[in-house]
Computed example of a mutant assay.
Amino acid sequence: MRIAITGGTGLVGNALTESLRADGHDLYILTRNPENGYQKGVTYVKWLSSRADPASELEAVDVFINLAGESINSGRWSDKRKASILNSRVSATNEVVSIIKHLKQKPKLLINASAIGFYGTSTVDTFTEATEKAGDDFLAQTVEKWEAATFEAREFGVRTVFARFGVILDKKDGALPRIALPYHLFAGGTVGSGDQWLSWIHIKDVVSGLRHVIESTELAGPVNFCAPHAVTMKSFGKTLGSVLNRPHWIPAPSFALQLLLGEMSMLVLEGQKVIPEKLIKSGFSFTFPTLEEALSNIYS
Rank of each mutant, 00 (worst) to 15 (best):
A52M: 08
V191C: 02
N112S: 13
A134S: 14
P228H: 09
K234P: 02
N66Y: 00
N297A: 15
Y44M: 08
P182F: 02
R81I: 11
G120L: 11
L48I: 03
A4S: 09
A252E: 06
E18Y: 06
R246N: 08
W200D: 06
S88A: 08
G10S: 14
V206L: 08
T160C: 07
L244D: 13
K82Q: 14
T17H: 10
V63C: 13
A15K: 15
D26T: 13
S193A: 05
A187I: 06
L109A: 13
R89A: 00
S91K: 12
Y119Q: 11
I111R: 01
S71G: 09
S56G: 12
E155T: 09
R89E: 06
W146T: 01
A220N: 14
N33A: 04
D205P: 03
F225R: 08
K108Y: 00
N14Q: 15
L139N: 07
S74C: 02
I111T: 05
S84E: 07
W200P: 07
A60I: 06
Y44P: 00
E263I: 06
T128N: 07
A220Y: 15
K104H: 12
N73G: 15
T123R: 13
V207E: 05
T150V: 11
V97P: 02
R21W: 07
S98G: 07
F225P: 09
T17N: 04
E129H: 03
F165R: 02
V42W: 10
P289D: 02
K133D: 12
L181T: 14
E215N: 13
K273F: 09
A163Q: 05
L291F: 10
D205Y: 00
A149I: 01
S122T: 07
Y44N: 05
K238N: 12
P251L: 03
T290L: 01
E215G: 01
S296C: 04
D26S: 15
E277F: 00
K145S: 14
F284T: 05
H202Q: 04
I3G: 01
S98I: 00
V97W: 09
G283L: 06
A68P: 04
I65S: 07
L27W: 03
L185H: 00
E59R: 07
W146F: 01
T128Q: 04
N224D: 13
V191L: 10
R32T: 11
G69D: 06
R89V: 02
E218H: 14
G37D: 07
P177S: 06
G237C: 05
L267S: 02
R246Y: 13
N224V: 04
A22G: 01
F255C: 06
G69Y: 10
E18K: 15
E155S: 13
A187V: 10
E277S: 14
I65H: 09
L267Q: 12
L20M: 14
T290W: 00
W47S: 09
P276H: 01
N66M: 06
I29K: 07
L11W: 14
G13C: 12
